[in-house]
Amino acid sequence: MTAARIAVSLRRSFHHSRLAQIALIAALWLVGEAVVRVSGAPLPGAVVGLGLTLLLLATGRLSLFSLRRGANWLIAEMLLFFVPLVVAVVDHHELLGLLGLKILVVILGGTAAVIGMTAFTVELCCRLGARHGHAA
């Protein structure tokens, strides 16, 4: 009785603690890294951790409420974590000038093509599906 009550209140506080959830997510990531290290699978450990987490969620061993707060925080602040990598530009003086301009052209042209291609493919599939009577 009391043990059950303690378990319930523990779970409730876990569902409210962002920090504990971030620690849980980090632990799942480390498990993924360990699996890759031991098995030598040609996948990043983080992706294995992601797959493992999805598996735990789908089989009901892990509740979405046990990681949602932490996950939302990590994703919302993701940008901060990759700033240190972008600063690598200081080691690439060659990117200032004509070469940088060329790269900008590749990115602008390529991205415009990706936007157009993705939008038209999905739109076309939706309209075809609608015409065949499926809910698109």
């Binding site: 799942l28 992706v47 951790g49 987490t53 700033v83």
Partner: peptide, 28 residues
């Protein structure tokens, strides 16, 4: 130098690992 900078702030980039795992929540 970038080496000095990343030596100091590089741990922030390590958190990109947990971020990848965190994507399980929106997917699910």
């Amino acid at each position: 130098s970038y080496a000095d900078y990343i030596g100091g702030a590089g741990w922030l980039a390590v958190l990109l690992g947990p971020v990848t795992v965190a994507f399980a929540a929106p997917i699910y």
